[in-house]
Nucleic acid binder design. Structure first.
Lengths: 120, 120
DNA sequence: CAGCATCCCCTTAGATACTG
DNA sequence: CAGTATCTAAGGGGATGCTG
């Protein structure tokens, strides 16, 4: 519904309580301290093995990484590919829905680099 | 559509490991169940009184709203304007940094409406 | 390698009551 | 109206150890 009001300046009422529900659901999916970071790293390079993600996000614990990854998988953002080998080999990649987060992540990244108050 | 370009395909290297720090800081600022929702509502209409925000986000408690608002204020995303009157009158508006979140919010909103798996 | 299980702590967030 | 104060329950998240 980004097209409803077009711009988001000082319009009277572009969209009061319309798709707030959707936004909330989307935020719910992306909620969590590591989710966006995981998606970010998968956007940077895909697919990634579990241990690669672990290394990419040093401060995350295995437990959290597994947990958030499962949540993202359950929400259809990430796909888990298991290679039936020994030793175990698992790769993660984004679903089309996950890849569609690119503009959002890019915009966020842009904000972080340019407008974010903590970018100093 | 997203204002960022709409290229969702296979980007080789949007941003390797460069400003991950910045992204993390930005995510930290926006972290929390209500922050993005608050910013969203302020983007829709500005300024807003405390009670307006309360009504716009029914499931938030006063405590949480105050808390998240303060955090956003401390992070330079939101500005708090107090009118020295009786009864008390406080308005909230976005700082330029906060307003700069528009593209990100729009992209997120777009994702929520179109690509988010839970948008069905 | 990729995970699961367990223990435990500390923060978060909800409800409620009170105030300038 | 716009908060503050307090109490409490829930669970997020860390550390460690074990397994297929």
């Amino acid at each position: 519904m980004a097209s409803t009001g077009g711009k988001v300046s000082a319009q009277p009422e572009p969209a009061p309580g319309c798709s707030i529900e959707q936004v909330e659901r989307a935020l719910g999916i992306l909620e969590g301290r590591w989710k966006l970071l995981i998606v970010h790293h998968l956007l940077v390079r895909q697919p990634r093995r579990f241990s690669e993600l672990e290394r990419a996000i040093p401060r995350v614990t295995q437990k959290m990484l597994v947990q958030q990854l499962r949540a993202l998988e359950a929400d259809g953002v990430v796909r888990r590919i298991v290679f039936p080998e020994v030793p175990p080999h698992v790769e993660y990649e984004l679903t089309p829905a996950g890849a569609a987060l690119t503009p959002a992540l890019t915009a966020l990244h842009d904000w972080a680099a340019n407008a974010c108050p903590a970018s100093a």
